[in-house]
Design a protein around this nucleic acid. Sequence first.
DNA 1: GCTTGGCACTCAGGGCTGGCGAGTGCCAGC
DNA 2: GCTGGCACTCGCCAGCCCTGAGTGCCAAGC
Lengths: 338, 338
Amino acid sequence: MQDERRLAVLRAIVEDYVATQEPVGSKALVERHGLGVSPATVRNDMAALEEEGLITQPHTSAGRIPTDKGYRLFVDRLTTIKPMTTAERRAIATILDGAVDLDDVVQRSVRLLAQLTHQVAIVQYPTLSRSTVRHVELVVLTPTRLMAILILSSGRVEQRLVELTSPIDDDDVADLRARLGAAVAGRTIAEATVALAAVLPPAGHESTLREVVDVLLEAMSDHRSSERVAVGGAANLARFGDSFEVSVRPLLEALEEHVVLLKLLGEAQTGGLVTVRIGHEGPYQEFASTSVVSTGYGPDDEAVGNLGVVGPTRMDYPGTMAAVRAVARYVSRILDEA
Amino acid sequence: MQDERRLAVLRAIVEDYVATQEPVGSKALVERHGLGVSPATVRNDMAALEEEGLITQPHTSAGRIPTDKGYRLFVDRLTTIKPMTTAERRAIATILDGAVDLDDVVQRSVRLLAQLTHQVAIVQYPTLSRSTVRHVELVVLTPTRLMAILILSSGRVEQRLVELTSPIDDDDVADLRARLGAAVAGRTIAEATVALAAVLPPAGHESTLREVVDVLLEAMSDHRSSERVAVGGAANLARFGDSFEVSVRPLLEALEEHVVLLKLLGEAQTGGLVTVRIGHEGPYQEFASTSVVSTGYGPDDEAVGNLGVVGPTRMDYPGTMAAVRAVARYVSRILDEA
DNA sequence: GCTTGGCACTCAGGGCTGGCGAGTGCCAGC
DNA sequence: GCTGGCACTCGCCAGCCCTGAGTGCCAAGC
């Protein structure tokens, strides 16, 4: 009974603090939420919560604010993801359904997520690893220059320039195209990589085939594309009421370091599970006052990429989690269809 | 004689203010630059410069800072673009030569430019209009779904999904491919657009051909790609010593609005000419305290895109102009080779 | 006629102070 | 175990003064 009220107090503190961004005192708390007890009682509860390390006071004569641990408890036990309104659902569907290709899906998702959450959104491009190869195309640009094009089931198209040491004619190209197509078409990237290696002539034996295959292998090796991320809503950094230098600047720098962002997004969760990393729980101590809400997306609940938002620890967790989950679902559905 | 000294004073004020970001007084000016006259004399000159609207004082008992008009005079008459050091040139060459495709060239350029200038860099993707069509490819994904791929001389690859109303077989596709190839290969985008229109059957007569051609025309219409820009160095916004809300925030918002950025970059200049727009000279009054240094790039001095940097009016113009020009040259050279 | 030193004046910024008020912790009573 | 009361703490704000940088003007000098 008493315990329950304490948790109610914690929830009220989190909600108020998120809304007002100011330390919340006992009196205001009783007034705004119908707690049915007096401020003095709430003060006792607050003292207990502080004892447990769930809230803290920025200075002696101020109200309380939640600690990271407090937010953690709030997220784990005091909140249910609030469902999107139908209007929001419809907006998501409309915006994402208008996408013309994979790049466009990613671009739109990131914008959408930023708008929904009023925070900085990050969407990782899908990894190639689960895709299958739909088609390999070789296009002759000059006799010593080919364009190799790889079309994947995910809708992604990888293109690479191949510089040849010896000129090639159209018949050779047709032959090459047929052999490559036979080797990889319909296979997953992993299988295709093996198959391509098998097609190669003995090592040391230089050939046009080797040159082309090397480029294709490189294109399939996934490094470049899976490390790409799209970022949106940087203007929402202004919502960090905090000082520019300490909070915003490092984040602004990180937004151009895709490796950092990927690490921030963390491991992909699937099946509608949303990961929340609060403050110091993240991998970078520069971001001690930022939280990350992320999840995986991909057809059939197999994660092929992550997406999420970054914001101040003081954020609307239920709303943000709902938005992240909803966008991930729609993106997954679209990838499923494509 | 006197006039000349006044200009020297203006130059000194601009240089000092850019370096220190603080209003510069007569005494400091005489000390730091060997002007050979007394502070009192400089004060007289300053009064004259202020009369002409070239400098101003933020408040009565402070030093002077240049006005937009002062910067304009400085840029037009008091400065020569300072050449890059050989080390810088080499760095540019090394970084850009490593690019694997067109997208990569743009990405690297924007990073490089941001690093060189310590400002926000913007690079427009090349327009298609001057490109010629190298190849058209159609790939069957499902019987009612094609992937249409357009390879252009600039190295750009446009891909579009085509949904067909009636199924198609491989022979039809081969036929279609041949007809389209004959119509557009080797032509410029403009010519190809006309040629494609000619291939079409009479209007109202629905056909697979029409569906494919429509998509190709849309892809060539250039809107999407020429409106794309890459942005880098947003973290350098921190260098705006100015208030966050008034200067940084609108810019941060603009950085996600590609249309706004394109307008900021303005008309392309070619032949090594660099455009400088200072403060209010630009199209948006929100950016009254920002300047844009930009130029065009493209093979053979034909502009196919713009690039530039955005920064506070208080910026190192000679250095920035040099960096912008140098990067544009290298990008042009690379596009020439490709 | 330009340059210079001198001088009075202005004003932003920093440091200090005192009052205000929000908020707390504790205690005695219900 | 809850509540009202009370003394206490301390951040914030407004007002104040002082300092110092920088100016404009003037009269004298080259």
